[in-house]
Structure formats: C-alpha cells, structure tokens
C-alpha cells in the first residue's frame, strides 16, 4: 500500500515537472521588458530569474501539500 503511494508521489512529481516546464517556456521565456528603450538585459534576466524562482517556490509548496495528502497516515505514525 505504502509502496504504491510512493509511486503515486513520484508520478505527481513528474507531472509537476512537466507543468512547471510548460509555464517556464510559455510564460517566462518570451518575456521581454523595455523593448526599443533598451531595458538593461541584466535587469531583464533578473526579473526572469525572480519569476523562475517563484515558480520553483510554488512547485515546492504544491509538492509539500501533495506529500501531506498522500502520506498523511504514514507521516503521523
């Protein structure tokens, strides 16, 4: 039973990687600030990094919730 739950958790991690990757490609990749005004490329990358870190934080938060939900009984024991 528990071994089965571990498989579910690994599968959930895989799905979250696919979704998180999709967000990176669809949202973060095409982002460009400033346009013709020549917005500093380092600042541009900095903002992208901040967004990427937010996505990673969200990934970890969701994973923690999934972990608590899947392993509720085991973690309490």
């Amino acid at each position: 039973m528990i071994a089965g739950l571990v498989y579910v958790f690994v599968f959930a991690m895989w799905l979250l990687i696919l979704v998180g990757g999709g967000l990176m490609v669809v949202m973060v990749g095409p982002l460009s600030f400033g346009g013709s005004d020549g917005f500093d490329p380092i600042l541009n990358s900095g903002i992208k990094i901040a967004i990427a870190l937010l996505i990673i934080a969200a990934w970890i938060f969701i994973l923690s919730k999934v972990k608590n939900w899947i392993f509720q009984k085991q973690l309490k024991s």
């Binding site: 696919l18 990757g21 999709g22 990176m24 973060v28 380092i42 990358s45 900095g46």
Partner: peptide, 18 residues
C-alpha cells in the same frame, strides 16, 4: 537553455549559469 517536453525550449543565459 532548458528543453522541456511538450512545450519546447527556453533560452535563459544568466539563469542557466546559476
């Protein structure tokens, strides 16, 4: 850059060094 399944490639020069 990072290659992701289903969605494609994202170029992240500064972030990638990290």
């Amino acid at each position: 850059g990072l290659a992701f399944p289903l969605f494609g490639f994202v170029k992240i020069p500064v972030l990638y060094i990290g």
